[in-house]
Computed example of a mutant assay.
Amino acid sequence: MNAPLKPDAFSVAAEIAQAAEPIIRFEKVGKVFAGRRGQKPVTALEGIDLDVPRGAIVGVIGRSGAGKSTLIRLVNGLERASSGRILIEDEDVTGLTEAGWRTRRRATGMIFQHFNLLSSRTVFDNVALPLEIGGTPKAEIAGRVEKLLDLVGLADKRERYPAELSGGQKQRVGIARALATDPKVLLCDEATSALDPETTQSILALLKQVNRELGVTILLITHEIPVIKEICDRVAVIEGGRIVEEGETFEVFTRPQHPTTARFVEAVTGVELPAHLEGQLRETPQAGGSTVLRITFSGANATAPVISRLSATVGIDINILAGRIDAIAGKPFGSLLVAIPAGEPGVGAVLGALKGLELKAEVIGHVA
């Protein structure tokens, strides 16, 4: 069990009420890479407007080549914007010199997909490295590293080398190292992509703990929609170098407005029709058959006995074909596929009753 940090161990972020205040702001940011060997320049980002609220966990999701890696590299100066402005704590960092970026990076930690640990240094020494580079006295380094190793659950691995650790343990070392300089922002570059599902869950739980106990703002990029669902307060969907949708994770997942977003979230919010019925689905009602509806639930309705109440209200037998109840950003969300007798007035009565209950419902087809 990871022990909580003592209040005086690290500076804790401001009150939760400040969460709406952006600690990072992108204003019309663009990034163009010069073409190689006479080829045309490549536009990686264009017109990026994005706020990262202080104390929040914000995810940026997109497929390979969408521009998400370039975006996160702009935040720590590994890349420079071609246009627009990037503000961190109200400081315009767009034109910072390398010396200015060295100062700024002390307030920004970063963890990587492939850990980036030094194989010749122990766990303790890997975590201590940023402090040594920054000139922190040895006496202070020891105390700080010990607290961090306790936080990430590796106090008993302090003298081990990276080759002796599992992938999850290596990433925990990476997180401890990123927190060594007491950053206000933690950047995560596909931090769980190299991990198995169970280890991913433990790392996400640790990141939530870091956010909650230390008040560290987290900006992460990923192509894994379950990561966004599990950990992020807000999400931005990037495609072709542009943000195509952005908002609170629950709202974006349950009411996607852009086709790219809808394709991403279908895997974690939808429910598949049983295989034996999928081939029978038709666009028009079948005589004596059934109409198949998809009903989505959120909030209190996600766990309420809506179907039994609905059946009693409209007086129609409702057959549940498949369903799932999950949590998105900590809020319950459910999806059901049901079959009801085809034809009016039954279908109309059910759809009307569902609308009255403020539930989303759609006809996805008909079966004989």
Results as ranks from 00 to 15, higher is better:
E79T: 09
G356W: 10
G30C: 06
R160D: 08
N76A: 08
L281E: 04
A342T: 15
R63K: 11
Q169A: 11
G67N: 01
Q209H: 12
T97H: 10
P305T: 10
E15V: 14
A81L: 04
L207D: 04
F112V: 06
P341Q: 12
S82V: 10
G100P: 08
R54D: 02
I57W: 02
V367N: 03
V75D: 03
L195Y: 08
V268L: 09
N2V: 14
I57V: 15
E272G: 12
T260Q: 11
P341R: 09
A194F: 05
P22T: 07
S120V: 09
G270T: 07
A236K: 03
I364R: 11
A194W: 03
V42S: 02
P7R: 11
S82G: 15
V227L: 12
I203E: 02
D189M: 02
L118W: 14
I72M: 07
E246F: 13
A128P: 06
P7M: 09
G365W: 04
R102L: 15
R158C: 00
A20T: 15
P197D: 08
S69H: 09
N301G: 06
G30N: 03
G62H: 01
A14L: 13
A191V: 12
E283P: 13
G247C: 06
I316T: 15
D90A: 14
I221N: 00
S120H: 15
I61T: 06
A339C: 13
S120Y: 12
G109C: 09
I325N: 14
I225G: 00
V227A: 07
H258C: 08
D92S: 11
G174F: 05
A17I: 05
R121N: 07
P162V: 10
A128D: 06
G47E: 13
S11F: 10
L219G: 00
S82H: 06
D233Q: 12
G356H: 08
A205W: 05
T284Q: 14
V145Q: 02
T260A: 14
L293R: 00
D92A: 09
P4F: 12
Y161W: 12
E251V: 12
A19Y: 05
G134C: 08
L151T: 00
R85L: 04
A300C: 02
E230M: 08
P256V: 03
A142L: 12
R105V: 11
F33C: 04
I238V: 14
G323P: 07
P183S: 03
T199D: 04
I141C: 02
R63A: 13
K147S: 15
P197M: 07
A302Q: 09
G343L: 02
E362D: 13
V185C: 02
E79Q: 13
A327H: 13
V268W: 07
S166L: 11
Q18H: 13
V60G: 04
T313D: 13
G330I: 08
E89Q: 14
S311M: 15
R144W: 03
I238S: 02
H366N: 05
V292P: 00
E164G: 10
